[in-house]
């Protein structure tokens, strides 16, 4: 699980260009404006490539994917 989280934080940092993203694994990424639609899609595509999972856009319920912890949870379920 910690592996997954580390990878996710790496992806978020690459996409947003912010070094401090993911320090708080419960930070709401949408509310705090870290992820806009474009960044969200980039994160989704990267998650698909890196973890080999399929996440359709409409499955992407913002409330279920809003923090590093939640993303990790969903990735683990879908892996």
């Amino acid at each position: 699980m910690d592996d997954i989280k580390e990878k996710i934080v790496g992806i978020l940092q690459d996409v947003t260009g912010l070094d401090n993203v993911g320090q708080d694994a419960d930070q709401d990424l949408f509310k705090d404006g870290v992820l806009d639609s474009m960044a969200t899609v980039e994160v989704l595509v990267t998650l698909q490539d890196d973890f080999g999972i399929q996440v359709p856009v409409s499955e992407f319920d913002r409330s279920q994917w809003s923090t590093v912890n939640k993303i990790a949870q969903r990735v683990q379920e879908l892996e």
Partner: peptide, 15 residues
């Protein structure tokens, strides 16, 4: 528009 046009278009273009 965001969910059914913009994000899908972005997704296809990036993928």
């Amino acid at each position: 528009f965001r969910d059914f046009i913009y994000m899908r278009l972005m997704f296809t273009v990036i993928k």
